[in-house]
Structure formats: C-alpha cells, structure tokens
C-alpha cells in the first residue's frame, strides 16, 4: 500500500498547472478532436496498410480524461460539489462517446470518491450510520429505477433532461442558503424511533457538538427523487444530499456534507451495478477517470487552505451553466 500511496504522491506532484492546461487543451481545443472524424479509427484493412495510421493515438483520450479528472477532483474538493456533476455534462458535451458510458463512468467516479472518504468521515462522526442508512435505503432503490430508465430512454431525451437538470442544479446552488448549525427544536417521531442523533468534535474550537434531526419524513421522501436523478444521469447527487440533510432535516453542515458523501457510497453502488451489468463501464474510460479523481481530490485537499473558494464557486457555476446549455443544445439537435 505504501508503494501505491507513493505512486499517487509522485503523480500528484507531476500534476502541475501545466498538465491541467494540457488536459483542457486536448479536450477543448483539439479541434473537436473529439467531434467526429479525427477520432475515427480507420477500417481494419486501412490500418494494416503501410504508411496509414489512425487519426489520433488511442492513448490520447484516456490521458486527457485522466488529466481532466484531476482538475475536476481539485474543483470538487475546493467548492464542495461532487465530481460527477461536473464530469458528466462537460465530458458528455465535449467527447463523442455515448452518454451511456459517460454516465457509467460518472457513477464510478462518484462512488470511488465516496468510498475513499468514508472511513475517516465515519471515524470522526461527520458521517453517521444511523442517519445515513434509512436515507440510503430509499435512495438506492430509486437509483436502480433511475439507472434503468436512463439506459432505456432515447439518448437525445436523456441529454436534454441532463441539460435541464444541470441548469436547475446551478440555480439551486446559487440560491440555496445552508446553515452551519440549524436550530432543531426537538426530534420528530421517526427520528426518535430510529435514534437519529450523534456527536462530533468541532475542529476549530475543540468542542463536542451533539445534534439530532427533525422533518425526517420529508427528508426520506426527498431522497427518493435524489436517488432517481443520481441513477438516471450518473451524478453523485451530493449537490442535493447536502441541502436536504442540512436545510430539511436540520443536520449541522459538516455532518450533512460528510453524511452526503457516505450516502453516495451506498446509492451509487446499486446504480453502478446496473451500468456494469449492462456493459456501460469500459475500463479505458472509467479507470483513468477514477485515478484522476483520486489524485485530484488529494491535490485539492492540499490546496484547500490557500484557495479562495468563493471565486472558484462562481467559476463552477458558470461552468455548470455552460455545460447544462451545451448538453441541452446537443440533445435538441439530435432529437
């Protein structure tokens, strides 16, 4: 494991600003390398003919995906949004790959990030099993349904729906106001029955914070819709989990963020299997993206202290809005 960890540190060090720019250049400027013919692999007969090579080497786009997801991982940590919500609409609009494979990869990227964050979040109490398990149960059932609907609907409809969903998320992120410690007058009956309460140590003051939740029924109801969207669009759904846990249930913001991440590890597992069994998880696309996300997350954590997250948040909102519009336009054109 030390070797793996050392490898990550080494690659993370190499992943400088220059490589980030290269990744974006390959993806965006490579004259829609992307778009159509330049990615085309010649027919077998042509390939075997001397002097004729493929238009683009096969390794270029996994490398571009790897570098791009490092950037996504950094942005995800610094701004607190999930990686898949940036990854799926942007890659889906830029690359000529079918959205089925991009959504499968988006889910795996979100799932891996959640699995790696899970142990430390659980140990320090920022993710709570008693709070997460009931929400995850409903969310995972809905995510299976969402994944099946997403893989069955015609691609342009999914692309248009994704565009609309991403634009709604951008508006939601702009307008939603979260509270570090919402006032919960008393736990409701479901919360008492399920023992939804916990404690964590506030790192800035060293104080122990005890919390409980209310409006649990509404929270459970909301997670059905969140799970469906996560499965259908291959999004991690952290963008919706956090506001529901914080603003509806009244969990402290840190617990909401930590528990949201942990819920993804359960919700996305169920949807991921639908994509895996359908054949929509291709290692050449998925694994570079997962590795890039892990490295980006680690780099992001180190940059977090010295980054002005407000400015980056605005950048992400603009990015999401553009990605939503691109997805919408691409879907409408193909309709």
């Amino acid at each position: 494991m030390r070797i793996v960890s050392a490898l990550f540190r080494m690659v993370a060090a190499v992943a400088s600003a220059r490589t980030m720019i290269t990744a974006l250049a390959v993806l965006v400027l490579h004259p829609r390398a992307v778009a159509a013919e330049s990615w085309t692999i010649l027919p077998a007969a042509a390939v075997t003919s001397p002097g004729i090579a493929t238009a683009t080497p096969w390794w270029l786009w996994p490398l571009a995906l790897f570098l791009f997801t490092i950037l996504v991982g950094i942005i995800a940590v610094v701004t607190g949004v999930g990686g898949a919500v940036i990854f799926v609409p942007i890659i889906g609009s830029i690359l000529p790959l079918n959205l089925d494979f991009i959504r499968g990869t988006g889910l795996m990227v979100a799932l891996t990030g959640a699995l790696y964050a899970g142990p430390s979040l659980l140990r320090i109490g920022l993710a709570d099993l008693r709070l997460c398990l009931p929400m995850a149960l409903l969310s995972s059932v809905a995510s299976i349904a969402g994944a099946m609907v997403g893989l069955s609907l015609p691609a342009p409809i999914v692309q248009v729906a994704l565009g609309v969903a991403i634009l709604c998320i951008a508006v939601f992120m702009m307008t939603g106001k979260q509270h570090s410690r919402p006032h919960v007058p008393a736990p409701d009956r479901i919360a008492v029955l399920l023992g939804m309460a916990g404690s964590y140590r506030e790192s800035t003051t060293g104080d122990r914070v005890d919390w409980t939740v209310h409006r649990t029924g509404w929270g459970l109801f909301s997670f059905v819709f969140i799970g469906f969207a996560a499965g259908m669009f291959g999004l991690g759904a952290g963008w919706a989990n956090v506001p529901v846990l914080n603003m509806v249930l009244g969990a402290p913001l840190k617990v909401a963020v930590g528990s949201s991440k942990f819920i993804l590890s359960i919700t996305d597992t169920s949807a991921a299997w639908v994509y895996i069994h359908s054949g929509a998880v291709l290692p050449l696309i998925t694994i570079p993206s997962i590795l890039g996300m892990i490295i980006g997350t680690r780099v992001g954590v180190k940059l977090l202290a010295n980054t002005k997250s407000d400015k980056i948040r605005i950048f992400v909102l603009v990015l999401l809005s553009l990605a939503g519009l691109m997805s919408l336009v691409k879907g409408i054109r193909a309709w």
Binding site: L122, R123, D210
Partner: peptide, 30 residues
C-alpha cells in the same frame, strides 16, 4: 448542543464499518 469536555466515541457498528471500508478500498485500488 455544544459541550467542551466530553470525549466523542463513535458507535461500535460505525467503527467496524469504517475499518472494513478502509481495508477494502485500499485492496480495490491495488
């Protein structure tokens, strides 16, 4: 509620889940 001195010890099930998840995620990455 905020209290200054109490220690925060997580639930046994939660600790067991965290320990196993850590081991598995490392094996998975390898």
């Amino acid at each position: 509620m905020v209290t200054p001195d109490d220690t925060v010890v997580q639930d046994n099930a939660q600790r067991r889940y965290a320990d196993l998840l850590l081991v598995q995620s490392r094996i998975g990455l390898a």
